[in-house]
Design a protein around this nucleic acid. Structure first.
Length: 106
DNA sequence: ACGGTGACGAGAT
DNA sequence: TATCTCGCCACCG
């Protein structure tokens, strides 16, 4: 059973400038169908030590309702740490996304 | 204890 | 391509 704690623990390990999708995080935790739980966990998170901005959708889109400033805020945070962003405001998962093995190895 | 609530994702239209 | 639907399940009151 996947818990919010597990999500936070893994997200904390995502390196600066890299990102992972909700679904990949769920998969790395052994529950590939629970992407929504990952999203919910991050949505309600209050701990600033968890780099929530490094988690994006499977297609690289940022969170519509990212805390404190929405998607704009998330965009700036990612830009500031060197993630590669596309013209349409999505992150380039090819360049900045962690593979599943990478996530599992963390 | 039980049901509403999502920052998902894939498939259908 | 843009929307829509639906399965999914931990959390909280």
């Amino acid at each position: 059973m996947m818990r919010f704690r597990d999500v936070y623990r893994l997200v904390r390990q995502i390196p600066r400038g890299r990102v992972a999708s909700y679904g990949r995080i769920a998969a790395a935790l052994g529950e590939p169908r629970q992407a929504r739980v990952v999203g919910w966990a991050l949505h309600v998170n209050k701990d600033s030590g968890v780099p929530c901005h490094r988690v994006v959708a499977e297609d690289g889109r940022l969170a519509d309702s990212f805390a404190h400033g929405g998607r704009e805020a998330q965009y700036h945070l990612l830009q500031a740490e060197g993630a590669t962003l596309l013209d349409d405001g999505r992150v380039d998962l090819e360049r900045s996304g962690l593979s599943l093995p990478d996530l599992e190895a963390i």
